[in-house]
């Protein structure tokens, strides 16, 4: 349903050799990938490999230099209606939950923003109070959280609110940009269980950007390895042991150590 076709992205370098130089640094090289409806794609790579840039291209915030982003075969960056189509279908949860929510908004207002998008999309009025309570319940928070400010919530709770906000738009795809990496291990598991549950309930499609292999194996169907802007491997999670990519191998080795430690 969402398809990237030979995406190239480059940024103008800060340091130029000439005064009006146009030296560019390429971040993504010919990245192509397709996400099917109802699946979960994990994008894995080390820091600086272009994961987040890819996320920005996916969610319509960064126009690539070349290549196409297609949603249901409609090019996203070609026209306004294409962008609107993506905006209606896709929602996002960020890594840094401290800046994900406007510190001046109560949880109620944060969720209302998502509901507003849904109202516009579906051209109908919603009972906002009821919806807010339903959403909070969905992510496992009690309805008295609605009156709180973001700084009065813990990291895990706030991340749940952000997930609720993402779901409030009634999207078909949710992009998680390192959404759980900044939480502690226990909360991570809780959130991941929540995500799996929501995926079943609402038949969502997930795109997961992370550097944490455990969460990928836990959640995703497919995994894409990104190394210095190149797609090095794209395979299903079940066959992840067969990977030939060196970086992926390195990650796999480290995970084994991590798990045995946890077992002890």
């Amino acid at each position: 349903m969402l398809k990237l076709d030979k995406i190239c992205v480059s940024f103008r370098s800060e340091r130029q050799d000439k005064i009006f130089g146009h030296t560019k640094q390429q971040i993504l090289f010919d990245v192509s990938v397709e996400v099917k409806k109802g699946t979960c794609l994990g994008i894995l790579g080390e820091s600086g490999s272009g994961k987040s840039t890819m996320g920005r291209v996916l969610c319509g915030l960064l126009k690539p230099d070349s290549g196409n982003v297609l949603i249901n075969d409609i090019p996203v960056y070609a026209s306004k209606s294409g962008r609107r189509e993506l905006q209606n279908k896709l929602s996002i949860v960020f890594q840094d939950y401290t800046t994900s929510a406007n510190p001046r908004f109560r949880v109620r207002d944060i969720l209302r923003e998502g509901l507003y998008v849904r109202q516009r999309k579906e051209r109908m009025r919603l009972d906002q109070e009821k919806e807010i309570n339903r959403l909070l319940e969905l992510v496992g928070l009690s309805s008295d959280f609605a009156e709180r400010f973001p700084h009065e919530l813990s990291g895990g709770q706030l991340q749940r609110v952000c997930i609720a906000r993402a779901i409030a738009c009634n999207p078909e795809i949710i992009l998680f940009d390192e959404a759980i990496s900044s939480l502690d291990a226990h909360t991570q598991v809780q959130i991941m269980d929540l995500l799996l549950e929501l995926k079943e309930k609402l038949s969502l499609t997930y795109i997961f950007i992370t550097h944490d292999l455990t969460s990928i194996t836990y959640l995703c169907d497919d995994v894409l390895f990104l190394y210095q802007g190149h797609v090095t491997e794209h395979l299903s999670v079940k066959r992840i042991n067969e990977t030939k990519d060196t970086y992926a191998k390195k990650l796999l080795e480290s995970i084994v150590v991590f798990e045995t430690e946890e077992a002890v």
Partner: peptide, 25 residues
Amino acid sequence: KNFVQFSCCVGMPERFILFRHLLPS
């Protein structure tokens, strides 16, 4: 900031972003 990025991403009107997010901030 991410909350503005979210608003951009889900296509909130610019009016909302300016007057509810940026100005109060």
